[in-house]
């Protein structure tokens, strides 16, 4: 099938998409947007998190056809004018990045959290990021990063 969608404000059109492909596969293998990661293929790890018409989704669980005509924001689309977003800057500054495989998903999920709740409590942060697995950091500095990004650093 033919797929038209907008990613990070750029319109894309791609042919010969197999019906079984996920949005994640299209982003990575067809559009060359490697920022969204594939670690579990079943919506458990959050590494592939993107915003689909503003809604946080695991792109591995979205069929390519479901993205027809819709707007997708990936980690690559978060910064402006070649600069990092406040959330990206906070993750870097807090040392919340080790191997970095989970980082794009965590950054996208944090952007979504702060959009809905600009001053989350620790419990709200934990609940919002519970769908993003990280194996390196133990999440301590992830919490630091989110607090800093929210301006609620203690």
């Amino acid at each position: 099938m033919q797929l038209r969608l907008e990613v990070n404000g750029v319109p894309y059109e791609t042919d010969d998409v197999w019906e079984g492909e996920s949005l994640l596969y299209v982003l990575r293998e067809r559009l060359g947007l490697w920022g969204s990661k594939n670690a579990c293929e079943q919506g458990e790890c959050g590494s592939c998190s993107v915003l689909l018409d503003g809604e946080l989704v695991c792109s591995c669980l979205v069929a390519a056809g479901q993205a027809q005509g819709r707007h997708v924001v990936t980690v690559e689309g978060l910064g402006r004018d070649g600069r990092m977003s406040a959330v990206q800057e906070a993750f870097l500054e807090a040392g919340a990045v080790q191997c970095g495989f989970c980082t794009p998903g965590l950054v996208v999920a944090t952007e979504d959290l702060l959009r809905h709740n600009p001053a989350p409590s620790d419990v709200e942060i934990r609940e919002a990021l519970a769908g993003n697995l990280c194996r390196c950091t133990g999440y301590e500095k992830v919490l630091d990063a989110v607090r800093a990004a929210a301006g609620t650093s203690r």
Binding site: R28, L92, T103, P104
Partner: peptide, 23 residues
């Protein structure tokens, strides 16, 4: 010192090439 990771900026931006991103 608490030096920043040299690969950190790429990693937070989704531009760091992992082994599954090669082409």
């Amino acid at each position: 010192d608490d030096a920043r990771r040299p690969d950190g900026a790429q990693k937070v931006a989704g531009r760091f090439a992992f082994s599954s991103d090669l082409w």
